[in-house]
């Protein structure tokens, strides 16, 4: 196995483009190292991107934030301003693993590991986040929901990697939240996850919303019916019922060691409803 720690994006892309066999990006390593140790993968090339300038930085941009691919969950939390604007994204990222894991784990790693249960992904999707993909041909900004294709598979081409996440400026009276179900209280993988962001008008009527569900399909879902169910409402009980029903209807889960189809369908609705209540309260301030 070859380990490289280039100090420019160009050099990293060059290494990845020319690599034969299996290559992997190393940022926090909280997925990669576990997979290597357990024998799941044996990469021929590991490219550590932490030495590339900007990878560990959070910078303000166009009223929002650009978050480098190697920014850890702990750094994201300590930043403060990101969490103030997009609490759903930060709380979702901070749910991953333990305190120790938070010191290393990154949102981009969570995204590119392409697990349908990734906690930060539905929250980023709900916030309208985009991923900046760098590669041998061009740099492109891609909606987060278009990165993961299926468990363990992404839409990234050979030589490409995600260099940063951009969280746009949140409009006034915007609230976000993420909830997941796990059988334990921490250190677990989402059985169902629900991320939501919404914007209200001055009267408390929801004018825009985005809802994303995790762990109920091969990748995180964007559920437009959920958004429609609450837009135009003040999140009254009828709207919440419509939201829960839409979330359950959209869920297309499997039964496995973590949960059953029936359970995931039901709980998708429960969590969407609960997350919406939190997001609405946050939007009202």
């Amino acid at each position: 196995m070859r380990y490289e720690a280039p100090d420019t994006i160009k050099a990293a892309v060059g290494l990845l483009s020319k690599a034969k066999g299996t290559s992997r990006i190393l940022a926090g390593g909280t997925d990669l190292l576990v997979q290597m140790r357990s024998g799941m993968i044996e990469p021929d090339l590991v490219v550590d991107i932490k030495s590339i300038p900007g990878m560990r930085e959070i910078v303000a941009e166009k009223g929002g934030f650009r978050i480098g691919a190697a920014v850890s969950g702990a750094e994201l939390e300590e930043h403060g301003k990101v969490g103030k604007m997009w609490p759903g994204v930060v709380e979702a990222t901070n749910l991953i693993g333990s305190t120790q894991i938070q010191g290393r784990a990154t949102m981009v790693g969570n995204l590119c590991n392409a697990s349908p249960a990734a906690d930060s992904v539905p929250a980023m999707i709900a916030a309208g986040a985009t991923a900046r993909v760098v590669g041998p041909k061009r740099t492109r900004d891609v909606p987060v929901e278009d990165i993961a294709k299926a468990p363990g598979k992404t839409s990234l081409a050979k030589g490409e990697f995600v260099a940063s996440i951009f969280l746009p400026k949140a409009p006034a009276r915007t609230g976000s939240a993420y909830l997941r179900f796990i059988p334990r209280t921490e250190m677990d993988i989402a059985v169902v996850g629900a991320g939501i962001a919404m914007t209200l008008n001055a009267k408390g009527v929801i004018t825009a919303a985005k809802v994303s569900l995790g762990a109920v399909a091969a990748r995180a879902l964007v559920v437009e019916e959920c958004a429609k169910a609450i837009i135009g409402s003040t999140l009254d009980d009828a709207a919440l019922d419509r939201l829960a029903a839409a979330a359950s209807a959209a869920a297309k889960p499997i039964s496995d060691k973590r949960g059953t189809v029936d359970f995931r369908i039901k709980v998708a609705g429960v969590l969407a409803r609960r997350a919406a209540v939190i997001a609405y309260d946050r939007a009202r301030g």
């Binding site: 059988p183 334990r184 209280t185 921490e186 250190m187 677990d188 993988i189 060691k257």
Partner: peptide
Amino acid sequence: LDYRIPVCS
């Protein structure tokens, strides 16, 4: 991860 013994919390 998936054999869930209780954690402290």
